[in-house]
C-alpha cells in the first residue's frame, strides 16, 4: 500500500494541507484588516496580490491545498463511517471528547459552502468578472456587507472556522507526530488563541462595515 493512501499517510496530507491553510489564513486576515486602516492601502495590497507572480503561483498551490484537504477529508469521513456499520443505541461521546473534534466534517463542509459563496462573490469577480466602472476591490469587499444576511452568513462561517481550527490546529501537530510533554500544552494554547483571532478578526471586519454606516 502506498504511503499516501495508508491511513496515516492520509492524515499527514490532512495535517500538512491544514497547516498550509492556517498560514494562508494569517496572510488573508492580514490583508483584510487593512480595510480597517484605509481604502488605498487595501487596494494597493489587493493589487499587489493580484499581480505579483509569486503570489499568483501560490494561488495554484493554495487551490491544490484546498482540493487535497477537502478531498482527503471527505474520503476519511466516508471510511470512518464505514468502520462502524452499526451505531450504539446509547452513546455519550460528550463525556470523552470535544464537540469541535467530533464535528470536523460538519464544520469543514459548512466552510466549504461558504468558500464557494466567497469565491463566487469576490475571487471570481475580482479575477475574471467585470468590475463595475469606478469600483475598487475595497468597494466590492465592503459593499457586500451592506447586506445584513450576507454579514450573518459570513460571521457564522468564521465562527465555524474557529471551531474547525480549535481542534484542527493542535490536531495537525499530533498527526505530524509532534507531541511533547512540555510543548504540546503550549501548542494547544496557541491553537486556541489563533482560532479566536481568526474568528474574531474576520468577523470584526464584516461587522464593522455592516454597521459602520
Amino acid at each position: 500500500m502506498g504511503f499516501f493512501t495508508s491511513s496515516i499517510g492520509r492524515k499527514i496530507v490532512m495535517s500538512l494541507t491544514g497547516l498550509f491553510l492556517i498560514t494562508f489564513l494569517i496572510v488573508h486576515l492580514g490583508v483584510n484588516l487593512l480595510t480597517l486602516v484605509s481604502a488605498e492601502l487595501f487596494n494597493e495590497a489587493s493589487h499587489f496580490m493580484a499581480t505579483n507572480p509569486l503570489i499568483q503561483a501560490m494561488q495554484y498551490v493554495l487551490a491544490l491545498g484546498f482540493v487535497l484537504h477537502i478531498s482527503q477529508g471527505i474520503i476519511l469521513q466516508i471510511r470512518n463511517k464505514q468502520a462502524r456499520p452499526q451505531n450504539y443505541a446509547m452513546n455519550k461521546p460528550a463525556t470523552n471528547s470535544s464537540w469541535s473534534s467530533r464535528s470536523m466534517i460538519l464544520t469543514g463542509l459548512l466552510i466549504l459552502l461558504f468558500l464557494i459563496l466567497h469565491l463566487k462573490d469576490y475571487f471570481w469577480v475580482m479575477k475574471f468578472g467585470e468590475m463595475p466602472a469606478g469600483q475598487t476591490d475595497y468597494d466590492l469587499v465592503t459593499g457586500l456587507f451592506q447586506n445584513k444576511l450576507y454579514t450573518l452568513i459570513y460571521v457564522a462561517s468564521f465562527i465555524l472556522l474557529g471551531f474547525h481550527l480549535d481542534h484542527g490546529f493542535q490536531s495537525a501537530f499530533q498527526s505530524a507526530g509532534v507531541n511533547h510533554r512540555k510543548y504540546t500544552p503550549m501548542i494547544r494554547k496557541i491553537g486556541r488563541v489563533y482560532s479566536l483571532l481568526m474568528a474574531l478578526g474576520f468577523s470584526l471586519i464584516a461587522l464593522y462595515f455592516s454597521f459602520a454606516n
Binding site: S7, R10, S101, R102, Q174, N179, R181
Partner: peptide
C-alpha cells in the same frame, strides 16, 4: 477495516490503562 484517527482523544479518556495519545504521535 478500522477507521482513521481524528485525534478526538476519546480513546485516551476511555482506555482503562491510561495509554497516552503521545503514543499515536510517536507512531505517526
Amino acid at each position: 477495516g478500522f477507521g482513521n484517527c481524528t485525534n478526538t482523544g476519546a480513546c485516551e479518556v476511555e482506555c482503562p490503562k491510561g495509554i497516552s495519545l503521545e503514543n499515536i504521535a510517536r507512531m505517526n
